[in-house]
Simulated assay, not measured.
Amino acid sequence: MSQSPKSPTPPTPATGPSPLTPPPPVPTSADVARLAGVSRATVSYVLNNAEAVRISEPTRLKVRRAAEELGYVPHAAARSLRAGHTRLVLLPTSHVPVGPLYSAFLNELQWALRRLDYTVVQYGSLGLTGDEAARAWAELRPVAVISLGEITLSAHNVATLKRAGARAVITMGPDGVPGAHALVMDQQEVGARAAAHLVERGRRRIGVVVPEEDGLELFSAPRLAGARSVAGADVETFPMAYTEESAAALAARWRRLGRDAAFAYNDEYAMLLMRALQDEGLAVPADVAVIGADDLLLGRLLRPRLSTVRLELPTGDHLAELVDRAVREPSELTRRHDLMTAVAVHREST
């Protein structure tokens, strides 16, 4: 007797969701409103930090908790359409200036803008010219652009950004640009204060140490120019990388260079060079007076204590409020805001 063929064993069902299972629905502001027991308008006011409408703190807390529970995130593009502009502040940079002083300044600015409900985006602009950069930045439709001065902008570039919706263009540097607000940080004053301090101490043969690293010319070039502008200063330039090896190589040549003082780009380069000079048997300040810039705490802990140029910068809150005011009250007028003063601080190294 023939046997019937056995039925094939059914496959074991796969665990987990099927590839065809639709994703869970994206929560909406209406979902948040239902869960919180408020109107959609109230949800919008709370989550968009609207200051013109008074909402009680318990209601704000209830809306935020409902949004967090549902995983609701406001749609930035939709909000921009309603407002007529984004809340995006573009901070283009190819090289963020090294050193704790400027890092702290930029971090404080970004936090302050965030508290004002702006989203700060850093944009890598390496290799872009003014025209290329303006078009690239404009594609993101920022409400404001804060240019650190690494790329030279023209009035045409500012107009390109404003046609794309930028309500404010702010430049940081020694010169203003028509149509933009100029936040002037006069780096020449830093070099002039350092060299004048050395000349006053009887040191005229000044070696100015400039970084070999790319991207720091924005600061080092005007500081060098400022040192050269001081009457009585005999200035010679010496490139140095931020490495022990480079500092040691420069220190090994120092006696032959005939320089009785060194002004380094900033305190970090000054400390590196001072240690190398001491390793070469040169006394600071008897043989070489050394001064830096930025007034870092570490310079005060060295022996001898490092003389420096202290930079007095505005707070991040102050600058963020200036940006916010420029956004809320756009103007074609060029306005200049002096942001920095420099003061030489005499310590043991000079």
Rank of each mutant, 00 (worst) to 15 (best):
G281I: 02
A252H: 02
G258D: 05
P285Q: 12
Y242I: 08
E245L: 07
E280V: 04
R275Y: 11
V235A: 02
A276Y: 09
L272P: 01
L282F: 12
D260I: 03
T237A: 13
A289E: 06
D260L: 05
M240E: 03
E268D: 15
L272D: 04
E268H: 15
G258V: 04
A231T: 10
A286F: 07
F238Y: 14
L273W: 10
A276Q: 10
P239F: 01
V290M: 07
R275N: 14
Y242N: 14
A231K: 10
D267I: 08
R259M: 14
L277M: 09
V288E: 03
E245W: 00
A283S: 13
A248N: 11
P285E: 09
V288Y: 05
L273P: 00
R275S: 13
R259E: 08
L250K: 04
G281C: 08
V290F: 08
M274F: 06
P239V: 00
R275T: 15
D234I: 01
G281F: 06
W254M: 09
M274K: 12
L277I: 04
E280F: 00
F238P: 00
R253W: 05
A286V: 10
R255V: 08
L257G: 06
D287L: 07
D267T: 08
A264Y: 11
P285R: 13
R256S: 14
V230M: 03
G232S: 01
W254R: 04
R275E: 15
M271H: 07
A262S: 14
V290N: 10
A289V: 00
V230K: 06
F263E: 09
A233H: 03
F263N: 10
A249K: 04
A233K: 04
F263A: 13
L273H: 12
E280L: 06
G281A: 02
A276D: 14
A251W: 01
V288L: 05
L257R: 13
G281D: 06
L272V: 07
R275D: 13
T237E: 15
F263I: 03
E268G: 15
N266L: 12
A283L: 14
V284I: 15
A276V: 09
V284Y: 12
R275I: 08
P285H: 12
A233Y: 02
A248C: 00
E236T: 14
A252G: 06
R253C: 01
V235R: 00
A289H: 06
F263W: 01
R256E: 12
L273E: 05
G281Y: 02
A286D: 15
G281V: 04
R259D: 08
V235W: 01
T237I: 11
G258A: 05
A276K: 05
D267N: 03
D279A: 15
S246V: 01
D287I: 11
E245Q: 13
Y265P: 10
A270L: 11
T243R: 10
R259L: 15
L273D: 07
T237P: 02
E268L: 15
L282R: 06
L277Y: 04
V284S: 11
E236I: 05
A251G: 05
A247M: 01
T237F: 00
A286W: 11
D279K: 12
A286S: 13
M271G: 12
A233F: 00
A270G: 13
A286E: 14
L272F: 04
R256A: 14
A247S: 08
Y265A: 11
D260Q: 05
P285W: 09
D287N: 09
E245G: 07
A233R: 03
P285V: 12
V288D: 03
T237C: 09
